[in-house]
């Protein structure tokens, strides 16, 4: 089960059981929904944008351990970041979980998000890790449309 531990790192299991920022945010000025039709994962993201800075972030939804932990860690990490910084982090995160970039070459800005490096060995689970990121991109864009992974 050693390779399973690469995917289900302690930090991921911790965040999936006790997710941070799991709440409705009435004062949010941007929201978007994400849906993975293959597994039924749903996430709604709330963003409070002040200028181009993400002042606050929260989410609600149901999903697997990977998608829940991803939402929890995304909301932790991006608080206080600018939208441009969030975009850049998404690119780096995406490269990491799809195996385009190895863990030792990963940017330090990713911080705790590096814990998702093990996803690269489980291609069927990449969408679980990236669903909330696609949802963020939609929330920050003008459209705020529901995104799906398919």
């Amino acid at each position: 089960m050693s390779d399973l531990r690469d995917l289900y790192q302690e930090m991921i299991l911790g965040h999936s059981k006790s997710p941070h920022n799991l709440r409705v945010m009435p004062e949010a000025n941007r929201t978007a929904q994400g849906f993975n039709p293959l597994c039924g994962d749903k996430v709604k993201l709330y963003v409070k944008l002040e200028g181009d800075r993400i002042a606050d972030l929260s989410f609600e939804g149901s999903g697997c351990a990977i998608s829940t932990a991803s939402a929890s860690l995304l909301t932790d990490t991006l608080k206080g970041k600018t939208t441009a910084e969030a975009d850049a982090l998404f690119e780096e995160f995406h490269d990491l979980v799809t195996g385009k970039r190895q863990l030792d070459e990963a940017h330090n800005e990713l911080g705790k998000l590096k814990v998702f490096a093990g996803v690269a060995e489980f291609p069927m689970r990449v969408k679980c890790a990236t669903l909330v990121w696609h949802t963020l991109r939609s929330a920050l864009s003008a459209s705020q449309e529901t995104v799906t992974t398919e």
């Binding site: 089960m1 390779d3 399973l4 995917l7 289900y8 059981k17 597994c39 994962d41 149901s62 999903g63 697997c64 351990a65 990977i66 489980f122 069927m124 689970r125 679980c128």
Partner: peptide, 14 residues
């Protein structure tokens, strides 16, 4: 309870 089928599937696969 509290475990998503997707995680069940990945772990059983191993």
């Amino acid at each position: 309870d509290n475990i998503h089928p997707h995680d069940v599937g990945t772990i059983l696969d191993r």
